[in-house]
Computed example of a mutant assay.
Amino acid sequence: MTDNTPRLDHVVLWVRDPVAAAEFYEEAVGLEPVRLGEFAEGQAPFPSVRVNDETIIDLMPLTMAERMEMLPGAAESSGHPLNHVCLALPEDAFDALRDRLRERSVPVTDIGHDSFGARGNARRTFYFRDPDGNFFEARHYA
């Protein structure tokens, strides 16, 4: 990658309860919360969870939809999850994620094989929903 190559910085998800969402992503998915304490203290408008050194997922409260004037149509998009977000993991982390989701009775799909993505075909993949109905795909490459 060159220095001028675009990178994914963040994804914003509408959530009913940002604290509960952050807990789900930390405990079930294994992502580290960012600004959760500041949010709980009223010092940050929303918390996030860290995907990697360069990418976070913002957990935007649905109650903020009406106030997001900088984003035309924000209120109309609240409560309408995007198609899905895909997390690429090493094989052992993929298996551990699936186990943690099952331990929490989070429904997961059957394992798919050879699904195309940013790095070519993934060896295995599965899908799950977060508590707010957003779809996620988990995958690992060879």
Rank of each mutant, 00 (worst) to 15 (best):
I57H: 03
L97E: 04
L97A: 02
L89R: 12
P107C: 02
A142Y: 04
L89Y: 01
S78G: 15
F126L: 12
T55D: 11
C86M: 09
T5Q: 15
F94P: 12
P33G: 07
V19E: 15
A118Y: 01
L62R: 13
D9P: 00
L62A: 09
G37V: 02
A93Y: 01
E23S: 08
G112Y: 11
A96M: 06
L8H: 03
E26S: 08
E137V: 11
V108E: 05
N121M: 13
V85D: 01
M60V: 06
F136W: 12
P6R: 06
C86L: 02
G112K: 13
E26W: 04
T2Q: 14
A142K: 11
I56G: 02
V108A: 05
D130P: 00
F135H: 08
C86R: 06
L89G: 11
M70E: 13
R124F: 00
T109C: 13
L82E: 06
R124K: 14
P131A: 11
G133R: 03
R104Y: 03
G112L: 14
V11N: 08
V108Q: 07
M64G: 02
M64C: 02
D53G: 14
M70V: 13
A122H: 10
E54F: 13
Y25W: 01
E38F: 00
E76S: 12
T2F: 10
V106L: 07
D132Q: 02
C86V: 05
D17W: 07
M70H: 09
R124G: 04
D99K: 12
L13T: 08
T63L: 09
E91N: 05
V106K: 05
H10N: 15
V29S: 08
D53T: 08
P72L: 12
A28R: 07
C86Y: 00
R129N: 12
E137I: 12
Q43I: 00
P81Y: 13
D58A: 09
L89I: 07
H84K: 05
Y25L: 03
E103G: 06
D9K: 13
V29Y: 03
E137H: 08
